[in-house]
Write a protein that binds this DNA or RNA. Sequence first.
DNA 1: AGGCTTTAGTACAATATCGAACTAGTTCAG
DNA 2: CTGAACTAGTTCGATATTGTACTAAAGCCT
Lengths: 138, 138
Amino acid sequence: MSVDAAQLWTLNHRLLTVVLDACSAELAELGLEAKEFFVLAEVAASPYPAELAARLVIPKASVTVYVRNLVAKGFMRREIDDADLRRHRLVLTDEGEAARDRALAALAAEFDRRLTTIVPRDRAELHRILLALLEPAQ
Amino acid sequence: MSVDAAQLWTLNHRLLTVVLDACSAELAELGLEAKEFFVLAEVAASPYPAELAARLVIPKASVTVYVRNLVAKGFMRREIDDADLRRHRLVLTDEGEAARDRALAALAAEFDRRLTTIVPRDRAELHRILLALLEPAQ
DNA sequence: AGGCTTTAGTACAATATCGAACTAGTTCAG
DNA sequence: CTGAACTAGTTCGATATTGTACTAAAGCCT
């Protein structure tokens, strides 16, 4: 192996931690905790609590809490799923979409502040490699 | 921007979450929580609690807890720093080093399980790009 | 149709995390 | 020296997280 996977993992983990931390103040201004933001950002793709829990790799009980908070803040609402009465279909409100987009923009800006230090070709490379790495999971 | 930074960030975050989750059972067998593992893995490079807190971007109070657990488990011990009597120099025990190395190996194996799906040249690329991205922080 | 198993979501109690206040040691200006 | 300002680390109490047990609805036999 040319590059140590453990070292690679540690580097990457540190990168994400630092970027997220740098954005936490901006997220807070939008009325979002980091954990809540992850839920908000995934709702469109995975609109059911159980699906969110699986996708985000967090406990169902935690999703219940984050969704409750996000609903209280007016960022989303629950609707009963017609096809399966056990399920709560989560729907983003306009405010929810706006907050999500602004939060994503803040995160992207901070990440970008670091990405700009590398050449465009490397960004494309990074994107391609990360996609390949996520492949086995899907 | 050729590649969306927000999307890149999300992909990367998901990758690390999934890898860490896949390893959590193995870490547990070694007697380690994920958070404790991060501390254990950094102690050699940052042997003081305040330094660990800054490096890992976690509160000092949390470091206190993780260090207490790791000491109780016999993975490290505190020594009074000769140069500054306020500071606790943290020293890994042999068991601590062994556990850290095995945990890192488990993490590397899981990460590697994904890395093997990409060509060696891409690994080197990824390593180079991540290092470049972390540059501004240091 | 009736029971058995599985799944979605929640509630609650136990545990984990962490902000703020604190103690102890250090530094440094005067 | 001395004491004001600072730093390392911990403690404590408040908040956040989550395992487990639960209710309700579906799905699946037979």
